[in-house]
């Protein structure tokens, strides 16, 4: 299995621990990656559609040339690209216009055949759970884990969960936690927003949201939280100390990226997954995992 790998900006910027973990985990699973280097940021829901749709169409056209589906490791990249791809594939006239006006002068054309999938979806839909289970070397027994999806990995329905079967995507992370042998500490906010998108516009609300979700997980007895979205990670981990200060409560909940969490179950050591780079100490997770080894 081979994918055109779209790492996104944050996996090498604000969350530099994500990129290497994703690459290591993919290699271990036997997922071959061809990294897309000459493509741009998706726009992340900040740039208006008139700019971001052409930019993403270009990315899709490049993957189409490679003949590969795209793999993302970020809920936001995934969501923005899936929404753009939905518009570009469901409205052929719109696609033709973008091809004509934006891609043609580079000699590119997007035919509408590129699939964009987050690593989490790939595990369930392409890789297969039996194969995944056979790769587990360290079932994460006794580790209590809360899922946190990132909005764009669950909504909007037309782009993310277009069929009844695919509505199961809303539950993949819950399922994965149990598949990897950990205990699910379910939280009501797992599909809600982490607060990151309004960090600049309304910091107080943003931090309140981060505190709410991490606080809920803590109350449910979670040892850590796992997220497939580095932007959620920035707010839930990176801003957790500020959120604690604002809300006047101690939380101290380690937040793991999906590939890190997966990597621990595949037998990687915490150091290999760069857990040391987190803002909130991952000591409790590390010691629990080391007991399992």
């Amino acid at each position: 299995m081979k994918y055109a790998f779209y790492p996104g900006c944050v996996s090498r910027g604000g969350c530099p621990e994500l990129y290497p973990s994703a690459v290591k985990v993919s290699a271990k699973l036997g997922i071959e990656l061809e990294e897309m280097k000459d493509v741009a940021c998706t726009g992340a829901g900040v740039l208006p559609q008139d700019i971001s749709d052409p930019i993403n169409a270009r990315t899709f056209a490049k993957a189409e040339q490679l003949g590969l589906p795209i793999m993302t490791i970020c809920s936001t990249c995934q969501g923005v690209m899936a929404q753009a791809n939905y518009r570009l594939t469901s409205e052929p006239e719109y696609r033709a216009k973008i091809n004509r006006e934006y891609l043609a002068d580079e000699g590119l054309e997007y035919k509408g055949t590129t699939e964009v999938k987050h690593l989490l979806w790939i595990l369930f839909e392409d890789y297969g759970l039996d194969r995944l289970k056979s790769q587990i070397q360290r079932p994460l027994k006794g580790l209590r884990v809360s899922p946190f999806y990132g909005c764009f990995l669950r909504r909007p329905p037309e782009a993310i969960t277009p069929t009844k079967e695919l509505s199961r995507r809303k539950n993949y992370l819950d399922e994965l936690i149990e598949i990897l042998g950990a205990e699910l500490a379910d939280i009501s906010g797992k599909g809600k927003c982490c607060g990151f998108p309004i960090l600049s516009a309304n910091e107080e609300n943003s931090l309140a949201m981060a505190a709410k979700h991490t606080g809920e997980a803590k109350e449910k007895g979670a040892d850590c939280m796992v997220t497939p979205c580095p932007l959620c990670h920035l707010n839930l981990d990176g801003n957790q100390p500020r959120a604690e200060a604002q809300e006047g409560k101690e939380i101290g909940l380690p937040i793991l990226h999906l590939p890190q969490f997966l990597g621990l179950a595949l037998g990687f050591e915490p150091g290999e997954m760069s857990l040391k780079r987190h803002i909130v100490s991952t000591q409790t997770v590390e010691s629990k995992v080391s007991m399992l080894a």
Binding site: G13, G14, I51, P54, I55, E101, Y102, G238, R277
Partner: peptide, 29 residues
């Protein structure tokens, strides 16, 4: 972030290959 070796350093930001093309799209948009 710096203590954890993860603070991105502002303005030391290399261009991606294809950046010129992206700029063109941007300007057109």
């Amino acid at each position: 972030a710096m203590a954890r070796g993860k603070a991105p350093i502002p303005y030391l930001h290399p261009k991606r290959p294809g950046a010129e093309q992206i700029k063109k799209i941007f300007e057109k948009g």
